[in-house]
Amino acid sequence: MSGAKAAHLRLGVNIDHVATIRNARGGDHPDPVRAAEAAAGAGADGITAHLREDRRHIRDNDIERLMGEIRLPLNLEMAATEEMLAIALRHKPHAVCLVPERREEVTTEGGLEAAGQHNHLAPYVARLRDAGIRVSLFINADRRQLEAAVSLGAPVVELHTGAYAHAHDSGDAARYDAELARLVAGAREGAGLGLEVHAGHGLTFDNVAPVAGLAEVRELNIGHFLVGEAIFGGLDSTIRRMRALMDKARADALGSRSA
Rank of each mutant, 00 (worst) to 15 (best):
L89Y: 00
R188D: 10
G116M: 11
S258D: 12
L226V: 01
I222T: 14
T20M: 13
A126R: 15
R65T: 04
A42Q: 04
L51I: 10
R59G: 04
A39M: 02
P210G: 12
R10V: 00
E37Y: 00
V227P: 10
E83R: 12
E229A: 15
G202H: 08
I63K: 05
N140G: 15
A244S: 15
D142E: 15
M67H: 01
G3T: 01
A36M: 03
R10I: 00
H166R: 05
L245W: 01
L51R: 08
G26W: 12
G41P: 10
V184Y: 12
L254M: 12
P32T: 06
L121S: 11
H91P: 01
E64W: 03
G111W: 01
K92P: 02
L76E: 00
D236M: 08
Q117D: 14
A199H: 07
G190I: 11
G153V: 15
G171F: 13
L121A: 06
G12W: 02
R188E: 14
E147R: 15
R102T: 13
L180G: 05
R243F: 10
A191H: 12
G110H: 14
A38R: 11
G213T: 07
I70F: 06
R240H: 05
V156Q: 10
E69D: 10
L220P: 00
G186F: 08
R127L: 07
M246F: 07
R143P: 01
G162W: 14
S2E: 02
I21S: 04
G200L: 03
R55Y: 02
I231S: 14
A244Y: 05
G213V: 04
V211R: 04
R59A: 04
A167L: 08
G255H: 14
T238S: 14
L98G: 01
G12C: 10
T107N: 05
L76Y: 02
A49T: 07
L72Y: 11
F205L: 03
A79H: 09
A185C: 00
I222P: 06
I222S: 12
Q117T: 13
G27T: 11
R218L: 09
V208C: 05
L128S: 06
R218I: 03
P32G: 08
R103A: 10
Y124W: 12
N221E: 13
A7R: 15
P73T: 01
A86P: 00
A24Q: 12
M84C: 00
N140A: 09
E189L: 11
E109S: 06
A185Q: 06
V135K: 07
Q145L: 07
A131G: 10
L89F: 00
A126V: 07
N207R: 04
M84N: 08
K92R: 15
A126G: 05
A88R: 08
L89E: 02
D236T: 15
I133T: 02
G192A: 03
S2Q: 03
T107W: 09
G41Y: 13
V106Q: 13
G110Y: 15
A95T: 13
A230P: 06
T204A: 05
I58W: 02
G26S: 13
L137S: 03
D169Q: 14
V18M: 06
P73W: 00
I87V: 14
V197M: 04
D60I: 04
R143N: 10
A173L: 13
A86K: 12
Q117P: 01
A154K: 02
A167H: 07
P93Y: 04
G116S: 14
